[in-house]
Design a binder for these strands. Sequence first.
DNA 1: GCAAATTAATCAGGGCACTGAGTATTTCAG
DNA 2: CTGAAATACTCAGTGCCCTGATTAATTTGC
Lengths: 154, 154
Amino acid sequence: MAAVDLTTHPGHLARRLQQAHYLLWNTMVSEEITSPQFAVLNALVAEPGLDQRTVGERVGLDRSTIAEVISRLGRRGLLDKVRDPQDGRRFLLRLTDEGLRTHRKLTVRTARMNQVFLAPLSAEEQSLFFELIRRVADAAEGLRNPAEPAAAPR
Amino acid sequence: MAAVDLTTHPGHLARRLQQAHYLLWNTMVSEEITSPQFAVLNALVAEPGLDQRTVGERVGLDRSTIAEVISRLGRRGLLDKVRDPQDGRRFLLRLTDEGLRTHRKLTVRTARMNQVFLAPLSAEEQSLFFELIRRVADAAEGLRNPAEPAAAPR
DNA sequence: GCAAATTAATCAGGGCACTGAGTATTTCAG
DNA sequence: CTGAAATACTCAGTGCCCTGATTAATTTGC
């Protein structure tokens, strides 16, 4: 009787959206490489030689998760990991040729998948979809890193 | 050079949205009970005595995941699991008093959290947010269960 | 009535996501 | 220059999420 309607719960919707995406990715893009793994490859195409922590920041993965993802990509021979000679704490990451090839191949398939995924929305609705989700996610992330920009202390 | 902009990738946005939600849930609702666990409690408030598979269907969890979630809720003493006397394959699920209390408590907190989470959007934007996500998720789910309704065979 | 198909649940295995604790290296303060 | 703080990474532990294989019970077809 006191039960709630989950279809008005953003968390529940977000989970369902992600599940739906996961399934489509699996059938249309790759069964080997996951979406987060592709995000890492993509970050290293944009900025080769990044360290692990920074890659994680770029794609939104925490220190533990990025370590696992990178170790899997390393095992598959898609990237190399070398100690930074300037700073012995860091590992510098760089895609192998195989990693670059994989990224190229998946980029094409991902574009196709995104079209199918977003097909139920018109072009304007798609921009709105992106914007609304981004605003909510950004705001929620902001709640964690309490103030740092703006508002100079007097 | 061939790198892609992830902010226009629905999968990436969906993941970030869910992470943001996870974090807020943890701080504003509960560190013990997760959002999927709450969804299960809620389903059993609405329909006491459901079997495991059906609960999973209601909240969007597959057979393996729902088994884990239910076993955790059982360990915490929030629900009971009894063999269906009518059908020996099934387990019938029912909340304990403790489970009902927990559901009541979390319902209030969840409502508060949803307000904070959606605060960056106006009321109209919130409805749009729900509708767009729901349409995309529903369509993607539809791609898995190929046709069954409508289109009567001749 | 009984073998075959179906269904509910479990188990093994891989991957994502977070926290808290621990190690090694670098930077900073005095 | 040296002890303390910060930083990059690793490890252990918990939970969600999926697939494929297995087990037990029920339903269906002949």
